[in-house]
Nucleic acid binder design. Structure first.
Lengths: 213, 213
DNA sequence: TAGATTGTTAATCGATTAACAATC
DNA sequence: TAGATTGTTAATCGATTAACAATC
């Protein structure tokens, strides 16, 4: 049952809408027009209305949008009304940093397990979650109905671990390894390539430098 | 002296080209056609040729592209032939994880200092770099010609720290705080909003779930 | 009711893909 | 030379913006 497909451009903007609406809600603002939101977020009012209309009429003519209602609606579209259980594979610095990040919990992402191939790290724990050896990966996933695997391992191991994950009932991979993973369609992949991001920054520094000259 | 402006869509793809070309280079591949690269990277050959041609002719008719030459050229476009000195503001888990990430060094990003407002963390060190108190921020930046500040602090403090940075000669901010920073044009900003990324993943899980139903 | 503001259609802009002449 | 493949123009597609009738 496929509804009209929403473009990834729109989806990519939803979290930012959610953030601004959350702040407005916290400030006690009850309603906002696309024009006011436009001024706040520095995007066109037209885009805001088009974006929201992808999901049906959230607003009311002559009134604007109800902040609380819109906030909940976008949260629901993003699937934040559900809970997801995740494990972190790779107990290095980045893995531990993500494990310690409690804000994910508030959004319904529940930290359930951590894995590492290094025996020295096994047995350690992060926020009460124990680091387990890689051998236990598949069993743990199936026994605990894990939804998301976070990959914070080097790219060399990432490919083979992804292959193992393809054999489980995992639903998504949040990939911090600097490699493109090839997975069955049912497994969603979201990449965070930090070095790519840093290179874009580097480009923009150079470009600005050149413009000055 | 502004050359024809390159779209951010193109820039965003350059790091991925660089990664594939680097791998090909390591495998000893000397030349590649847009068609072969297209098959490898799963983008159209047409897009590859259009992208590269933004920067002038890198290829040769009937031959293709020289891998090593193209690799260097893209690196240069991205500004990776220069060195940038960076500091990390926020010595929490994420800050330490980034400080420990030695691959940045290989790309010319040099870790020079770390700051935190928590006195308990001051004096600690990450890869030989000492954590300093926030009071020393401006002095350290100017004395050490720091180019990039990495913000790994909560959004509440990020806004005021960004204001302080605006008064320095810093050239860019790599922002991990979940807030939009408003800075003068000369300071480049690149945001890494991890929770936004996680929400996109969540959306794609939900959507796939619904499609099945 | 009059004013405000959405929902939605139409116009524009930009990015991607297709096609092919130029040329190695 | 013939074949391969780029560089580049033209065609298509999609996303953004503008405009305005519908309606609260």
């Amino acid at each position: 049952m496929e509804e009209k497909e929403i473009s990834q451009a729109v989806i990519g903007r939803l979290p930012r809408y959610l953030r601004y609406l959350g702040e407005l809600k916290d400030e006690g603002v009850e309603r906002i027009s696309s024009q006011d939101l436009s001024a706040l977020m520095k995007v066109t009012a037209s885009q805001i209305r088009q974006d929201f209309n992808n999901f049906g009429g959230f607003g009311q003519q002559g009134y604007g949008y109800n902040v609380g209602y819109l906030y909940d609606a976008i949260g629901k579209i993003l699937g934040l009304d559900r809970q997801y259980k995740f494990i972190i594979i790779g107990a290095g610095n980045l893995g531990r940093a993500l494990g310690n990040y409690i804000n994910f919990e508030k959004r319904g992402f529940i930290f359930r397990g951590m894995f590492d191939q290094n025996p020295d790290l096994v047995g350690n724990s992060v926020r009460g979650v124990r680091v387990m050896p890689m051998e236990e990966l598949e069993r743990f996933i199936s026994e605990n109905d894990i939804d998301i695997a976070v990959l914070t391992i080097p790219k060399t191991s990432a490919v083979s671990v992804a292959e193992r994950l393809a054999g489980t009932d995992i639903r998504a991979i949040w990939n911090f390894a600097h490699v493109d993973l090839n997975l069955p369609e049912r497994i969603q992949v979201e990449n965070v390539h930090l070095s790519d991001s840093l290179m874009k920054l580097s480009y923009n520094i150079s470009r600005y430098q050149q413009e000055k000259e």
